[in-house]
Design a protein around this nucleic acid. Structure first.
Lengths: 196, 196
DNA sequence: GCCGAAACCGACCGACCGTGCTATTCTCCC
DNA sequence: GGGAGAATAGCACGGTCGGTCGGTTTCGGC
Protein backbone atom coordinates (compact mmCIF):
# COMPACT_ATOMS: atom_id res chain seq x y z
CA UNK A 1 0.00 0.00 0.00
CA UNK A 2 1.46 3.33 -1.07
CA UNK A 3 2.04 6.13 1.38
CA UNK A 4 -0.84 8.09 -0.07
CA UNK A 5 -3.29 5.24 0.26
CA UNK A 6 -2.20 4.63 3.82
CA UNK A 7 -2.73 8.27 4.76
CA UNK A 8 -6.08 8.19 3.06
CA UNK A 9 -7.12 5.23 5.17
CA UNK A 10 -5.99 6.99 8.32
CA UNK A 11 -8.00 10.06 7.37
CA UNK A 12 -11.16 8.05 6.77
CA UNK A 13 -10.67 6.13 9.99
CA UNK A 14 -10.16 9.25 12.06
CA UNK A 15 -13.07 10.99 10.34
CA UNK A 16 -15.31 8.05 11.16
CA UNK A 17 -14.36 8.29 14.81
CA UNK A 18 -15.01 12.04 14.85
CA UNK A 19 -18.30 11.61 13.01
CA UNK A 20 -19.46 9.35 15.82
CA UNK A 21 -19.16 12.32 18.14
CA UNK A 22 -20.26 15.31 16.11
CA UNK A 23 -22.11 13.80 13.15
CA UNK A 24 -20.90 13.34 9.61
CA UNK A 25 -21.68 16.91 8.63
CA UNK A 26 -20.06 18.16 11.81
CA UNK A 27 -16.60 16.88 10.91
CA UNK A 28 -14.71 19.91 9.62
CA UNK A 29 -11.64 19.50 7.48
CA UNK A 30 -9.59 21.79 9.67
CA UNK A 31 -10.27 19.92 12.89
CA UNK A 32 -9.84 16.59 11.17
CA UNK A 33 -6.51 17.64 9.70
CA UNK A 34 -5.26 19.00 13.01
CA UNK A 35 -6.15 15.77 14.81
CA UNK A 36 -3.96 13.94 12.30
CA UNK A 37 -1.08 16.41 12.37
CA UNK A 38 -1.80 17.26 8.79
CA UNK A 39 -2.38 20.56 7.09
CA UNK A 40 -5.89 21.15 5.86
CA UNK A 41 -4.74 21.39 2.27
CA UNK A 42 -2.60 18.32 2.60
CA UNK A 43 -5.60 16.41 3.79
CA UNK A 44 -7.92 17.85 1.22
CA UNK A 45 -5.60 16.78 -1.60
CA UNK A 46 -6.73 13.21 -1.01
CA UNK A 47 -10.35 13.96 -1.85
CA UNK A 48 -12.08 15.87 -4.56
CA UNK A 49 -14.55 17.39 -2.13
CA UNK A 50 -15.81 17.10 1.38
CA UNK A 51 -18.74 15.05 0.14
CA UNK A 52 -16.36 12.52 -1.41
CA UNK A 53 -14.71 12.16 1.96
CA UNK A 54 -18.08 11.74 3.65
CA UNK A 55 -19.03 9.00 1.24
CA UNK A 56 -15.77 7.20 1.91
CA UNK A 57 -16.42 7.50 5.62
CA UNK A 58 -19.92 6.10 5.31
CA UNK A 59 -18.69 3.25 3.12
CA UNK A 60 -16.07 2.49 5.72
CA UNK A 61 -18.73 2.39 8.42
CA UNK A 62 -20.79 0.01 6.29
CA UNK A 63 -17.77 -2.23 5.77
CA UNK A 64 -17.06 -2.22 9.49
CA UNK A 65 -20.65 -3.08 10.31
CA UNK A 66 -20.65 -6.01 7.91
CA UNK A 67 -17.33 -7.18 9.24
CA UNK A 68 -18.28 -6.89 12.91
CA UNK A 69 -21.93 -7.92 12.81
CA UNK A 70 -22.99 -9.74 9.68
CA UNK A 71 -19.94 -11.87 8.87
CA UNK A 72 -19.47 -13.38 12.33
CA UNK A 73 -23.20 -14.09 12.58
CA UNK A 74 -23.09 -15.94 9.28
CA UNK A 75 -20.50 -18.25 10.78
CA UNK A 76 -23.13 -19.46 13.24
CA UNK A 77 -25.31 -22.49 12.48
CA UNK A 78 -28.27 -21.76 10.24
CA UNK A 79 -31.55 -20.95 11.93
CA UNK A 80 -32.31 -19.46 15.32
CA UNK A 81 -28.71 -19.51 16.58
CA UNK A 82 -27.72 -17.32 13.67
CA UNK A 83 -30.61 -14.95 14.27
CA UNK A 84 -29.72 -14.71 17.92
CA UNK A 85 -26.10 -13.90 17.22
CA UNK A 86 -27.11 -11.32 14.67
CA UNK A 87 -29.01 -9.56 17.43
CA UNK A 88 -26.18 -9.95 19.94
CA UNK A 89 -23.59 -8.48 17.61
CA UNK A 90 -26.00 -5.75 16.57
CA UNK A 91 -26.53 -4.71 20.16
CA UNK A 92 -22.83 -4.79 20.90
CA UNK A 93 -21.98 -2.79 17.80
CA UNK A 94 -24.67 -0.27 18.58
CA UNK A 95 -23.27 0.33 22.01
CA UNK A 96 -19.57 0.21 21.32
CA UNK A 97 -19.57 2.20 18.13
CA UNK A 98 -18.58 5.83 18.08
CA UNK A 99 -17.10 5.96 21.59
CA UNK A 100 -20.22 6.94 23.45
CA UNK A 101 -22.06 8.24 20.44
CA UNK A 102 -25.00 6.25 19.24
CA UNK A 103 -25.18 3.89 16.32
CA UNK A 104 -23.66 5.68 13.38
CA UNK A 105 -26.44 4.71 10.99
CA UNK A 106 -29.19 5.89 13.28
CA UNK A 107 -27.55 9.25 13.62
CA UNK A 108 -27.18 9.48 9.86
CA UNK A 109 -30.80 8.49 9.38
CA UNK A 110 -31.92 11.66 11.11
CA UNK A 111 -29.17 13.74 9.58
CA UNK A 112 -30.04 12.79 6.01
CA UNK A 113 -33.62 11.58 5.92
CA UNK A 114 -34.68 14.82 4.29
CA UNK A 115 -31.41 15.73 2.58
CA UNK A 116 -31.27 14.08 -0.84
CA UNK A 117 -27.97 13.23 -2.45
CA UNK A 118 -25.43 10.44 -2.83
CA UNK A 119 -24.85 10.13 0.91
CA UNK A 120 -28.51 9.56 1.58
CA UNK A 121 -28.67 7.11 -1.32
CA UNK A 122 -25.80 5.08 0.03
CA UNK A 123 -27.30 5.14 3.51
CA UNK A 124 -30.67 3.97 2.23
CA UNK A 125 -29.09 1.11 0.33
CA UNK A 126 -27.07 0.00 3.35
CA UNK A 127 -30.10 0.03 5.60
CA UNK A 128 -32.19 -1.91 3.08
CA UNK A 129 -29.40 -4.45 2.93
CA UNK A 130 -29.43 -4.69 6.69
CA UNK A 131 -33.18 -5.36 6.85
CA UNK A 132 -32.71 -7.94 4.10
CA UNK A 133 -29.93 -9.63 6.00
CA UNK A 134 -32.16 -10.01 9.04
CA UNK A 135 -35.04 -11.31 6.96
CA UNK A 136 -32.78 -13.82 5.24
CA UNK A 137 -31.48 -15.08 8.56
CA UNK A 138 -35.07 -15.47 9.73
CA UNK A 139 -35.86 -17.46 6.61
CA UNK A 140 -33.12 -19.94 7.39
CA UNK A 141 -34.76 -20.34 10.79
CA UNK A 142 -38.05 -21.13 9.05
CA UNK A 143 -36.29 -23.58 6.77
CA UNK A 144 -34.65 -25.25 9.73
CA UNK A 145 -38.02 -25.57 11.44
CA UNK A 146 -37.05 -23.23 14.28
CA UNK A 147 -39.53 -20.60 13.23
CA UNK A 148 -43.04 -21.36 12.07
CA UNK A 149 -43.85 -21.58 8.38
CA UNK A 150 -45.60 -18.51 7.06
CA UNK A 151 -43.76 -16.13 9.38
CA UNK A 152 -43.72 -12.62 7.93
CA UNK A 153 -39.97 -12.20 7.46
CA UNK A 154 -40.03 -8.48 6.76
CA UNK A 155 -42.22 -7.90 9.78
CA UNK A 156 -39.70 -9.87 11.82
CA UNK A 157 -36.87 -7.67 10.59
CA UNK A 158 -38.95 -4.57 11.31
CA UNK A 159 -39.52 -5.48 14.93
CA UNK A 160 -35.93 -6.72 15.28
CA UNK A 161 -34.61 -3.32 14.31
CA UNK A 162 -37.16 -1.49 16.45
CA UNK A 163 -35.86 -3.18 19.56
CA UNK A 164 -32.32 -2.17 18.66
CA UNK A 165 -33.35 1.42 18.14
CA UNK A 166 -35.13 1.98 21.39
CA UNK A 167 -32.23 0.25 23.12
CA UNK A 168 -29.92 2.94 21.85
CA UNK A 169 -32.00 5.82 23.14
CA UNK A 170 -32.65 4.27 26.52
CA UNK A 171 -29.05 3.20 26.98
CA UNK A 172 -27.24 6.22 25.58
CA UNK A 173 -29.48 9.21 26.07
CA UNK A 174 -31.47 8.15 29.12
CA UNK A 175 -28.52 6.21 30.53
CA UNK A 176 -30.83 3.55 31.90
CA UNK A 177 -28.82 0.49 32.99
CA UNK A 178 -31.81 -1.76 32.38
CA UNK A 179 -31.76 -0.94 28.68
CA UNK A 180 -29.96 -4.09 27.59
CA UNK A 181 -32.04 -6.33 29.82
CA UNK A 182 -35.20 -4.87 28.33
CA UNK A 183 -33.88 -5.26 24.80
CA UNK A 184 -33.09 -8.92 25.37
CA UNK A 185 -36.42 -9.49 27.01
CA UNK A 186 -38.24 -7.92 24.06
CA UNK A 187 -36.15 -9.97 21.65
CA UNK A 188 -36.97 -13.21 23.47
CA UNK A 189 -40.64 -12.38 23.12
CA UNK A 190 -40.15 -11.77 19.42
CA UNK A 191 -38.41 -15.13 19.07
CA UNK A 192 -41.13 -16.90 21.04
CA UNK A 193 -43.81 -15.39 18.84
CA UNK A 194 -41.91 -16.48 15.75
CA UNK A 195 -41.62 -20.09 16.83
CA UNK A 196 -44.99 -21.52 17.74
CA UNK B 1 -49.41 40.13 24.03
CA UNK B 2 -46.84 42.82 23.35
CA UNK B 3 -45.21 43.19 19.96
CA UNK B 4 -41.95 41.85 21.27
CA UNK B 5 -43.52 38.74 22.71
CA UNK B 6 -45.38 38.12 19.48
CA UNK B 7 -42.21 38.38 17.42
CA UNK B 8 -40.47 36.11 19.86
CA UNK B 9 -43.15 33.49 19.38
CA UNK B 10 -42.86 33.78 15.62
CA UNK B 11 -39.11 33.33 15.83
CA UNK B 12 -39.40 30.22 17.95
CA UNK B 13 -42.09 28.82 15.68
CA UNK B 14 -40.07 29.40 12.55
CA UNK B 15 -36.92 28.06 14.18
CA UNK B 16 -38.78 24.90 15.13
CA UNK B 17 -39.86 24.39 11.54
CA UNK B 18 -36.33 24.95 10.27
CA UNK B 19 -34.86 22.67 12.93
CA UNK B 20 -37.05 19.89 11.59
CA UNK B 21 -35.17 20.16 8.33
CA UNK B 22 -31.58 20.89 9.31
CA UNK B 23 -31.40 19.97 12.97
CA UNK B 24 -31.43 22.26 15.97
CA UNK B 25 -27.74 23.06 15.71
CA UNK B 26 -28.10 23.61 11.99
CA UNK B 27 -30.43 26.59 12.36
CA UNK B 28 -28.25 29.64 11.91
CA UNK B 29 -29.36 33.02 13.15
CA UNK B 30 -28.73 34.64 9.78
CA UNK B 31 -30.90 32.25 7.82
CA UNK B 32 -33.56 32.27 10.49
CA UNK B 33 -33.66 36.06 10.51
CA UNK B 34 -33.81 36.27 6.73
CA UNK B 35 -36.71 33.83 6.57
CA UNK B 36 -38.60 36.14 8.94
CA UNK B 37 -37.61 39.39 7.20
CA UNK B 38 -35.72 40.40 10.28
CA UNK B 39 -32.19 41.60 10.73
CA UNK B 40 -29.88 39.17 12.46
CA UNK B 41 -29.27 41.55 15.32
CA UNK B 42 -32.94 42.40 15.63
CA UNK B 43 -33.65 38.74 16.05
CA UNK B 44 -30.77 38.15 18.40
CA UNK B 45 -31.96 40.89 20.74
CA UNK B 46 -34.80 38.61 21.80
CA UNK B 47 -32.46 36.01 23.25
CA UNK B 48 -29.41 36.13 25.44
CA UNK B 49 -27.63 33.57 23.32
CA UNK B 50 -28.21 31.03 20.61
CA UNK B 51 -28.46 28.32 23.22
CA UNK B 52 -31.28 30.20 24.94
CA UNK B 53 -33.14 30.22 21.65
CA UNK B 54 -32.52 26.52 21.17
CA UNK B 55 -33.91 25.76 24.59
CA UNK B 56 -37.01 27.80 23.82
CA UNK B 57 -37.41 25.90 20.57
CA UNK B 58 -37.09 22.54 22.28
CA UNK B 59 -39.52 23.59 24.98
CA UNK B 60 -41.95 24.63 22.29
CA UNK B 61 -41.62 21.24 20.61
CA UNK B 62 -42.29 19.55 23.94
CA UNK B 63 -45.37 21.69 24.47
CA UNK B 64 -46.60 20.89 20.97
CA UNK B 65 -46.06 17.19 21.51
CA UNK B 66 -48.01 17.21 24.76
CA UNK B 67 -50.75 19.27 23.17
CA UNK B 68 -51.04 17.09 20.06
CA UNK B 69 -50.38 13.63 21.46
CA UNK B 70 -50.72 13.37 25.22
CA UNK B 71 -53.63 15.70 25.95
CA UNK B 72 -56.03 14.31 23.33
CA UNK B 73 -55.16 10.74 24.35
CA UNK B 74 -55.98 11.54 27.95
CA UNK B 75 -59.46 12.53 26.84
CA UNK B 76 -60.05 8.93 25.80
CA UNK B 77 -61.59 6.41 28.20
CA UNK B 78 -59.15 4.90 30.66
CA UNK B 79 -57.50 1.64 29.72
CA UNK B 80 -56.77 0.13 26.34
CA UNK B 81 -58.63 2.79 24.31
CA UNK B 82 -56.40 5.44 25.79
CA UNK B 83 -53.26 3.39 25.11
CA UNK B 84 -54.38 2.85 21.53
CA UNK B 85 -55.00 6.51 20.91
CA UNK B 86 -51.68 7.39 22.46
CA UNK B 87 -50.04 5.21 19.82
CA UNK B 88 -52.20 6.60 17.02
CA UNK B 89 -51.40 10.20 17.85
CA UNK B 90 -47.75 9.31 18.34
CA UNK B 91 -47.52 7.82 14.87
CA UNK B 92 -49.35 10.73 13.32
CA UNK B 93 -47.16 13.27 15.08
CA UNK B 94 -44.05 11.38 14.12
CA UNK B 95 -44.98 11.48 10.51
CA UNK B 96 -46.44 14.95 10.22
CA UNK B 97 -43.88 16.75 12.31
CA UNK B 98 -41.10 18.72 10.71
CA UNK B 99 -42.53 18.70 7.18
CA UNK B 100 -40.87 15.57 5.94
CA UNK B 101 -38.19 15.49 8.58
CA UNK B 102 -38.40 12.80 11.17
CA UNK B 103 -39.62 13.05 14.71
CA UNK B 104 -37.94 16.06 16.23
CA UNK B 105 -37.01 14.27 19.43
CA UNK B 106 -35.41 11.34 17.64
CA UNK B 107 -33.22 13.67 15.65
CA UNK B 108 -32.26 15.51 18.82
CA UNK B 109 -31.48 12.24 20.55
CA UNK B 110 -28.70 11.57 18.10
CA UNK B 111 -27.63 15.19 17.98
CA UNK B 112 -27.20 15.51 21.74
CA UNK B 113 -26.73 12.04 23.19
CA UNK B 114 -23.05 12.75 23.65
CA UNK B 115 -23.18 16.53 23.99
CA UNK B 116 -23.82 17.46 27.62
CA UNK B 117 -25.54 20.68 28.55
CA UNK B 118 -28.92 22.17 29.30
CA UNK B 119 -30.38 21.16 25.94
CA UNK B 120 -29.54 17.54 26.49
CA UNK B 121 -30.87 17.76 30.04
CA UNK B 122 -34.19 19.13 28.87
CA UNK B 123 -34.38 16.52 26.14
CA UNK B 124 -33.68 13.70 28.57
CA UNK B 125 -36.34 14.94 30.93
CA UNK B 126 -38.91 15.20 28.18
CA UNK B 127 -38.21 11.70 26.93
CA UNK B 128 -38.38 10.25 30.45
CA UNK B 129 -41.72 11.99 30.85
CA UNK B 130 -42.87 10.44 27.59
CA UNK B 131 -41.95 6.91 28.67
CA UNK B 132 -43.70 7.58 31.99
CA UNK B 133 -46.80 8.76 30.21
CA UNK B 134 -46.98 5.53 28.24
CA UNK B 135 -46.37 3.43 31.34
CA UNK B 136 -49.08 5.30 33.23
CA UNK B 137 -51.55 4.77 30.43
CA UNK B 138 -50.70 1.07 30.46
CA UNK B 139 -51.32 0.99 34.20
CA UNK B 140 -54.82 2.31 33.74
CA UNK B 141 -55.35 -0.55 31.31
CA UNK B 142 -54.23 -2.97 34.00
CA UNK B 143 -56.52 -1.31 36.52
CA UNK B 144 -59.42 -1.51 34.11
CA UNK B 145 -58.74 -5.21 33.58
CA UNK B 146 -57.84 -4.75 29.91
CA UNK B 147 -54.21 -5.72 30.47
CA UNK B 148 -53.11 -8.55 32.69
CA UNK B 149 -52.04 -7.91 36.26
CA UNK B 150 -48.29 -7.99 36.71
CA UNK B 151 -47.58 -6.57 33.28
CA UNK B 152 -44.17 -4.91 33.21
CA UNK B 153 -45.24 -1.33 32.51
CA UNK B 154 -41.79 0.01 31.71
CA UNK B 155 -41.14 -2.87 29.36
CA UNK B 156 -44.43 -2.06 27.67
CA UNK B 157 -43.37 1.56 27.18
CA UNK B 158 -39.98 0.40 25.89
CA UNK B 159 -41.47 -1.76 23.17
CA UNK B 160 -44.12 0.85 22.41
CA UNK B 161 -41.46 3.43 21.64
CA UNK B 162 -39.35 0.94 19.70
CA UNK B 163 -42.16 0.37 17.24
CA UNK B 164 -42.53 4.10 16.76
CA UNK B 165 -38.82 4.51 16.12
CA UNK B 166 -38.43 1.86 13.46
CA UNK B 167 -41.58 3.21 11.87
CA UNK B 168 -39.88 6.52 11.35
CA UNK B 169 -36.85 5.10 9.64
CA UNK B 170 -38.79 2.77 7.41
CA UNK B 171 -41.33 5.42 6.48
CA UNK B 172 -39.10 8.44 6.13
CA UNK B 173 -35.68 7.22 5.10
CA UNK B 174 -36.56 4.00 3.31
CA UNK B 175 -39.85 5.43 2.04
CA UNK B 176 -41.56 2.09 2.44
CA UNK B 177 -45.35 2.49 2.11
CA UNK B 178 -45.90 -0.57 4.28
CA UNK B 179 -44.25 1.13 7.24
CA UNK B 180 -47.47 2.17 8.96
CA UNK B 181 -49.13 -1.18 8.38
CA UNK B 182 -46.15 -2.92 9.93
CA UNK B 183 -46.14 -0.55 12.87
CA UNK B 184 -49.81 -1.19 13.57
CA UNK B 185 -49.34 -4.89 13.20
CA UNK B 186 -46.46 -4.87 15.68
CA UNK B 187 -48.50 -2.75 18.07
CA UNK B 188 -51.46 -5.15 17.90
CA UNK B 189 -49.12 -7.98 18.83
CA UNK B 190 -47.85 -5.95 21.77
CA UNK B 191 -51.41 -5.32 22.91
CA UNK B 192 -52.33 -8.97 22.53
CA UNK B 193 -49.33 -10.02 24.60
CA UNK B 194 -50.29 -7.51 27.27
CA UNK B 195 -53.84 -8.77 27.62
CA UNK B 196 -54.01 -12.48 28.25
C1' DG C 1 22.19 8.92 -5.93
C1' DC C 2 19.30 11.04 -9.08
C1' DC C 3 14.94 12.53 -10.80
C1' DG C 4 10.12 12.57 -11.76
C1' DA C 5 6.05 12.03 -9.34
C1' DA C 6 3.43 11.81 -5.37
C1' DA C 7 2.52 13.90 -1.01
C1' DC C 8 2.23 17.70 1.71
C1' DC C 9 2.45 22.61 3.34
C1' DG C 10 1.27 27.70 4.16
C1' DA C 11 -1.10 31.43 2.71
C1' DC C 12 -5.15 32.92 1.16
C1' DC C 13 -10.19 33.46 -0.62
C1' DG C 14 -15.11 34.58 0.02
C1' DA C 15 -18.82 33.29 2.76
C1' DC C 16 -20.93 32.66 6.93
C1' DC C 17 -20.95 32.00 11.92
C1' DG C 18 -22.50 33.96 16.85
C1' DT C 19 -22.24 38.08 19.28
C1' DG C 20 -21.67 42.71 20.78
C1' DC C 21 -22.54 48.09 20.31
C1' DT C 22 -24.83 52.07 18.74
C1' DA C 23 -28.26 54.33 16.30
C1' DT C 24 -32.79 54.59 14.48
C1' DT C 25 -37.65 53.49 14.21
C1' DC C 26 -41.80 52.08 16.07
C1' DT C 27 -45.40 51.30 20.00
C1' DC C 28 -48.06 52.35 23.39
C1' DC C 29 -49.45 54.83 27.46
C1' DC C 30 -50.44 59.31 29.57
C1' DG D 1 -49.88 63.76 20.26
C1' DG D 2 -45.84 63.69 22.51
C1' DG D 3 -42.41 61.36 24.98
C1' DA D 4 -40.35 57.17 27.19
C1' DG D 5 -39.05 52.81 26.33
C1' DA D 6 -39.29 48.79 23.60
C1' DA D 7 -38.19 46.84 19.18
C1' DT D 8 -35.40 46.60 15.33
C1' DA D 9 -31.63 47.85 12.08
C1' DG D 10 -26.73 48.73 10.80
C1' DC D 11 -22.30 47.66 11.31
C1' DA D 12 -18.16 45.54 12.85
C1' DC D 13 -15.57 42.00 15.43
C1' DG D 14 -12.99 37.65 15.67
C1' DG D 15 -13.45 32.95 14.10
C1' DT D 16 -14.32 28.98 11.31
C1' DC D 17 -15.96 27.01 7.25
C1' DG D 18 -14.93 24.45 2.52
C1' DG D 19 -11.95 25.12 -1.00
C1' DT D 20 -7.79 26.89 -4.17
C1' DC D 21 -3.12 27.64 -5.54
C1' DG D 22 1.79 27.65 -5.97
C1' DG D 23 5.60 26.01 -3.89
C1' DT D 24 8.35 22.64 -1.09
C1' DT D 25 9.40 18.20 0.74
C1' DT D 26 9.47 13.30 0.53
C1' DC D 27 9.09 8.87 -1.73
C1' DG D 28 10.26 5.17 -4.89
C1' DG D 29 11.99 3.22 -9.18
C1' DC D 30 16.08 3.13 -11.87
Amino acid sequence: MSKGEQTRQEIVERALALAGEVGLEGVSLGVLAASLNLSKSGLFAHFRSKEALQIDVLQRAIDNFIQDVVVPALRQPRGEPRVRKLFDFYLAWTYGNGRGGSCFFMALTHEYDDRPGPIRDLLVQSQRDWYDTIARAARTAVEEGHFRAGLDLDQFAYEFVGIGMVYQQVAKLLENPQAEERARSAFEMLLARSRS
